[in-house]
Design a protein around this nucleic acid. Structure first.
Lengths: 246, 246
DNA sequence: GCAAAAGTGTTGTCCTTACACCCATGC
DNA sequence: GCATGGGTGTAAGGACAACACTTTTGC
């Protein structure tokens, strides 16, 4: 029975009374998670925001967040927020940073752990239009409630870096995508123009794109090939990089 | 007066009663910080560990951590732990990740934010030998108390990545160092051998090393030049990197 | 046939890698 | 004088950047 509990609670040693007394002496703090939910639409990087429900921040934009429940893992809480707002599960989600500045919340001390999530806009049917839940172009947001603008800036920089090291961009696209769409994602996120031929060569040389044998349809120009990303091969080939560069 | 408070608490809008009522309804959780304090000695990467003070983990090694105080920023708490254990201030310190798995602590729910710290072994005189506070070679640690081995592994991988993108290695060395020392740091952390000539060329071409016009002394071989790192130039030249690579 | 984007190669430059010999010091 | 690591250059190969024309589709 003890063994059973151990595996349930995820630690190799069970509950301990002395430890509990110690932990009970610690100050306790309200925790939240905030999700920076990115998507890609109309060749622009968008983020899902809501109007703050605090009078103080009336009409100001806010990230999607919620309290962390009493016995809830932060990853679980972030997934719960995502599910509640988008109805989607199994979405790319990664912890970014924990913000704890005293005074960051007008209701007193609140520590928040921020997650970034990337999802495919087309897969997503917004559940409810409560509190004006809407997509906003990331680079057109000026002020937000709480410290959320600073958090968004942090998450955006995080994304710019991550997208160059990991195939995150694919999470923003449908399963089948054209090279143009892929390049548009990179250009939008990195806020730069890339050479089309070099971009295509780069991805071709990686050998991680699978030709789906389908083409774009209903486009007003020569249709491009659609590809899928070879996640299996990517997982196998993750390299152990050594290259000092700063 | 309100303006004064705003700047003190670090948010652009002051305390708010409705918000406080909301925050009071949130569950509260004990928070800790754990510091993974790295140093470099005898050509090996070391980490500062203590014997756990919980009976349950008697004789097992533990990271240096402490509760987070009621109105304390996490960064401040991490610096406090560092100061308490090493007597050092203004040491390189960076937040790595927040761990929250239910059951990670035998005393009940505890969320911990992990910081990595790099310090120069030679600058450091250990304050007290309480609870067998000691340096341990990172790659010779097998089991630890709590989930601390998993945390250490995470922090070590973080370090291996960061050291290639930022001049962190310099934080592990004295102000004046030889190229051999610098290479030893990289080799130890990346667990690899590097070509000496290419390594030196690489750093020479960065133009971030300043010749101190001093040489090694008391070495049993031809003494090498000692350099300092040009932090000012580095800060100016931080590049905006675009290079997709995964 | 025109607009709009797809598709495709080559060249020069730069960065990375591999590799071997002499030099200065302590003992 | 010998052991130990310091200091240095070159050549080949690979990656990246710059650049223009033809093709396919919708209208």
């Amino acid at each position: 029975m003890l063994e059973y509990n151990k595996s349930i609670i995820g630690v190799t040693d069970g509950f301990n009374k002395d430890a509990a007394i110690l932990v009970n002496s610690y100050p306790k703090v309200p925790l939240t998670v905030d999700c920076v939910i990115f998507a890609f639409e109309d060749n622009a990087l968008k983020v899902l925001l809501i109007k703050s429900d605090l009078d103080q921040y009336k009409d100001q934009l806010s990230l999607l967040g919620d309290m962390v429940h009493s016995n809830e893992d932060l990853d679980v809480a972030a997934n719960r927020v995502l599910m509640a707002r988008t109805g989607m599960q199994n979405v790319y989600l990664e912890q970014v940073h924990t913000f704890s500045k005293i005074g960051r919340h007008p209701g007193g001390r609140v520590v928040t752990t921020v997650y970034a999530s990337l999802l495919n806009f087309k897969h997503h049917e917004m559940k409810i239009h409560e509190n004006e839940l809407k997509w906003h172009a990331v680079n057109q947001i000026d002020t937000m409630a709480f410290d959320h603008k600073a958090i968004l800036d942090y998450a955006y920089k995080w994304l710019q870096k991550r997208i160059q090291e990991h195939p995150l961009a694919l999470s923003l696209l449908p399963e089948k995508f054209s090279l143009r769409q892929l390049q548009n994602v990179y250009e939008a996120i990195l806020n730069t123009k890339l050479d089309r031929r070099n971009f295509r060569k780069k991805f071709a040389s990686m050998g991680l794109l699978l030709d789906s044998n389908e083409m774009e349809i209903n486009v007003t120009h020569r249709p491009g090939k659609l590809y899928t990303f070879d996640y299996a091969k990517y997982e196998l080939s993750k390299r152990n990089w050594v290259g000092i560069d700063f």
